[in-house]
Design a binder for these strands. Sequence first.
DNA 1: CTGTAATCCTGCGAGC
DNA 2: TGCTCGCAGGATTACA
Length: 270
Amino acid sequence: MPELPEVETVVRDLRPLLVGQRIRAITPGAGKLRRPWQPAWEAGLIGQRFEALHRRGKWILAHVGDSALLIHLGMTGQLTVQGPDVELANHVHLRFLLGAGELRFRDIRRFGSIEWYATPGEVHALLDTKLGPEPFATQPAPFATAIRSSARPLKAILLDQAVVAGVGNIYADEALFRARLHPRTLGKDVSKPKCELLRMAIIAVITKAIESRGSTIRDYVGGSGLRGGFQHEFCVYGRTGEPCVVCGTSISREVVAGRSSHTCPQCQNK
DNA sequence: CTGTAATCCTGCGAGC
DNA sequence: TGCTCGCAGGATTACA
């Protein structure tokens, strides 16, 4: 579910609620996450304080004392701080009791993960080895090279976290529409000016989405439980059969790179 | 180097 | 009303 704008919203929401708070107790739930919670990790966490909260791509990195928690929300992950008396929803897999309130990790489909690491440094290094630049940190020339040196369809390239970190299915479709590029077009067939148009489209759509607190299709909520608003501004995603906002042509859906992709057949030439 | 499919899960809406 | 089917924001792995 959550892509960069959603994860950024969670981090911004949680920062003031979490940083400075001490972990008093940890309660794992019954369901196993993709990386099962290890009770041995608790010794490094209990009694320690949340020192900082960072986002890198779709990953959340929390500094706790001298150690770190690495969190991914998968498709349906929710990370919220609420009063400890607030009724427990189903699918809550981990609870951190704090001085004020409780941090809860809820994940219906359990594609998410939480892992503990002894130092934040090793996690930053780990993320940097597998993630490309943040959209805002991309540069025209390296980005164009990454696109034009690939024989893969643009959709696959944009979803590749090693090329740009944080773009997922929604924002890939929206950025491609704004750049008037078809998801099936091969990277090597895209001109340098078009690559730059695409890079700017990614930055623009991600920026707009953050301003709207992300998109809620079904499950996503920010760190304080609030839903996103960018779903009302989609041009193509989930609008199959509806008219293109530019030309009125019916939006079509097809599978590209194994993911459902939405395009205006008129505006986005292959 | 590619693409494709399967894997981890639950829930919802469509269609019968 | 109740059933099955397809589909869903992600990441990783195996295999052709």
